[in-house]
């Protein structure tokens, strides 16, 4: 009897460690802190309160493989006049006047050898929040998906999208 308990305890210990490590690996990205951006742009205000559609700023998401960040002029279209007293807006205006594009810190990055087309995914009917999460509720954008190959493959499998390797591998 005692032997059984000891054996079970040992197995339990190792099993628990294994689960811990696996869990770490799988959910590590959720602990990924949202990076601090050169300008503290709050999606909560723009996509949340003002309910601006994603493609209003991220114009190329529907037209190109890259969604990209909006050009500085797009921001200035409104912020030429709106909230010009805020420090962040002043930072933005300085960028525009000094002709310096803003260097955002990437939150979502696929490796160089992967071809990912935003256009195809949007035209397939996917919502931006499917992969990017509830951005409208994020003061600072953080990564909600781990972007590993299996994550892409499982969605492709579920939605009967092409599973052919060169679909994504350049």
């Amino acid at each position: 009897m005692r032997r059984t308990i000891v054996i079970l305890a040992a197995l339990g210990y190792f099993g628990a460690s294994l689960l811990l490590v696996a869990g770490f690996g799988y959910l590590w990205h959720r602990t990924d802190p949202a990076p601090e951006q050169p300008i503290a742009f709050p999606h909560t205000v723009h996509a949340g309160n003002l309910r601006m559609p994603c493609t209003f700023c991220h114009v190329f998401a529907e037209l190109s493989r890259h969604a990209g960040a909006p050009p500085v002029q797009k921001c200035m279209d409104c912020h030429r006049a709106i909230a010009t007293d805020r420090e962040e807006i002043r930072k933005l205006t300085r960028h525009y006047e000094e002709k310096r594009p803003i260097e955002w810190k990437r939150v979502y990055a696929v490796p160089d050898f992967i071809y990912f087309s935003h256009k195809r995914h949007l035209r397939a009917g996917l919502e931006c929040s499917t992969c990017h999460g509830d951005v409208a509720g994020m003061k600072r954008v953080r990564r909600v998906s781990n972007l590993v190959m299996g994550w892409c493959v499982s969605c492709h499998r579920a939605r009967k999208a092409p599973l052919d390797c060169p679909t994504c591998h350049k």
């Binding site: 990924d32 190109s64 493989r65 960040a69 909006p70 050009p71 525009y96 810190k105």
Partner: peptide
Amino acid sequence: KRDSRPKLTSYLLPPEEGIVPGE
């Protein structure tokens, strides 16, 4: 370390008509 992130640089002005980035 996780500070070594790639950058995402925005345009200053939108690209000309007919030019799509990535195409």
